[in-house]
Design a protein around this nucleic acid. Structure first.
Lengths: 226, 226
DNA sequence: CGGCATATTGAAAGGAGTCAAGCTGTGTGG
DNA sequence: CCACACAGCTTGACTCCTTTCAATATGCCG
C-alpha cells in the first residue's frame, strides 16, 4: 500500500555536535533553550524509528509528519506539526516513531538534556513541558475517536477543520501534505480521500484552488463532530 | 447504536468531603497521598463528561472504562483501567470524558490538589506523574494505530493481547466488559467482535470458558501487529 | 424456574478498498 | 519559453469486509 518511507530511503539529518546550541529557541513563552536550526529537505528524515532520543524539536518553518510503519508496509501517521509547534517529546530512550519533513522545512534541534535541566531548575519550564505532553495526549485521544467512530466524510471534515485552525489563514487552508499522507493519517486510502474531497466540492462545502489549497465555504464541513 | 451510557442513566458517585483523605493511596512506588476508597456499583459513573476535575483515581479492585459520547449517540471507549492502575489525570479543569465502573469496583479518590502539592514538593512524585502521562500518551497512540490501520481480526487480537497482559493470569483472560464495550473500544460492532471471536475459536487460537473467559492457545492471535 | 440482558448466528446491504485508467500540474531540459 | 515527463491526483468499475437488520441462543439473577 502506498509509497513507503523507510529508514533507508532518505538520509537522516544530523546536526554537527560542534554547532549545536548556537540559537536561542523558545520552547514555550518564557522558556528558552539553546539549539540549532537546521534546514531539512522535503521527505528527509529528522529521526528514525529506532534512533536514540537525543533532541526535542521545534518547527521553525515548513511542516513535519510523525509516522509508524507496520511490518507489512502499512503506514500510520501519528501527527503533523507546523511552524511554531514542538514535537519529538518521548518518555523512553528510543524513538517509537519516525519524523520526516513534509516540505522543505527549518527545524530547531534542542538537546533533550537541555530541556530536562531547564525543567528541573524552573517550575515554569516543567509546567510548559507538562502542558505540551497533555496537549499531545489530548490530540492522540481525539485522533483515536476520529479513527474509531467517524466515517470517511466525517474524518476528512475533521481533518480540514484541524488544518484550518493550525495551518490555515481565515477560510483558506494550505495543505502541504500529499493525499497519501492524509490517507495514512485518517486511516483511509488516497482514493477515498480524493473522492470525499471531490464530493465536498460538489456539495459546495469547499472550493479547490489547486489540489493542495482549499477554501472553506460557510463552514459546512464543520457541522459534524463534537 | 448500542446501549448508551449517558450522564442521567446512573447516579454519579460522590464521596463525602468529610471522609475524604482517610486512606493512604500509593500513586506510584514511593509516592503516597491521602484519599478515600469508595465502592462503585457496576455501570455507576465515577465522573461525567462535564464534571470539574477534582480527583485522580486509582482502581483498587474491579475495572473502569473511560468513554466519550458523540452527539448522535455513537460511543467511543478511550481506555479501560484495571486493579492497580491510575486514571483521570487531565490537564484542563473540566473532564473531557466520562468514567464508569465496568463491574462493581473499589476506587480510590485522591484530591488532585493533593497530587499537585505532592508533585511540587517531591521530584519523585513529579517524575511519577510525568511517567503516567507518558504512558497514557503511548497507549493512546497505539490505540490510534489499531483503529487506523488494523482490520477486525487484528484489532481483536491486539485487544486480547493487551488484556492478557493487564487483566489475565497466564494464558487465561478474564474479560469484565461486555461485547458492546469491546466494540466501542475497537471501533467495530458487537456482531463483528462476536463473529471474530467465534472465528478465532474455530481456528483454535482461543478457547471460551463462558463468554467472558478466554484461554489463549499457543499465542496464535499474537502473531500480527508490531 | 422464569425472564431479561447479553451473546451468537444468518442474510442482505453498503461503504470503503482494490485495481485500473486517465488527468493535471509542476519541474526540467531542449 | 515551450514541451515533455513524471509524480500526484482524480475518476470509474468492481470486490469485499464490515455493518445492518433480524432471529435465535445462552446465561445470569431474582
Amino acid at each position: 500500500m502506498a509509497t513507503l518511507a523507510t529508514r533507508d530511503d532518505y538520509a537522516t539529518v544530523r546536526p554537527l555536535p560542534a554547532v549545536a546550541g548556537r540559537d536561542a529557541i523558545t520552547l514555550a513563552s518564557g522558556v528558552v533553550a539553546h539549539g540549532t536550526i537546521v534546514p531539512v529537505a522535503r521527505d528527509a528524515a529528522i529521526f528514525a524509528q529506532e534512533d536514540e532520543v537525543a533532541h526535542v524539536y521545534k518547527v521553525i518553518s515548513g511542516a513535519v509528519r510523525v509516522t509508524r510503519l507496520l511490518a507489512d508496509g502499512r503506514r500510520h501517521i501519528v501527527a503533523f506539526y507546523f511552524a511554531g509547534e514542538l514535537f519529538g517529546l518521548e518518555a523512553g530512550d528510543t524513538h517509537q516513531f519516525a519524523a520526516e519533513a513534509v516540505v522543505a522545512s527549518r527545524i530547531a534541534f534542542v538537546r533533550r538534556s537541555a530541556v530536562a535541566s531547564e525543567a528541573e531548575h524552573s517550575g515554569d519550564a516543567m509546567w510548559a513541558v507538562w502542558r505540551l505532553m497533555a496537549q499531545e495526549l489530548g490530540r492522540a485521544q481525539d485522533h483515536a475517536l476520529v479513527l474509531g467512530r467517524l466515517n470517511a466524510e466525517e474524518r476528512v471534515a475533521a481533518f480540514l477543520r484541524d488544518m484550518a485552525a493550525r495551518a490555515g489563514s481565515g477560510d483558506s487552508i494550505d495543505l502541504p501534505m500529499s493525499r497519501t499522507d492524509i490517507a495514512d493519517y485518517l486511516g483511509l486510502t488516497i482514493e477515498t480521500v480524493s473522492r470525499t474531497l471531490t464530493h465536498m466540492e460538489r456539495l459546495g462545502a469547499i472550493r479547490f484552488a489547486g489540489a493542495r489549497r482549499i477554501h472553506l465555504r460557510g463552514g459546512r464541513p464543520l457541522a459534524k463532530v463534537a
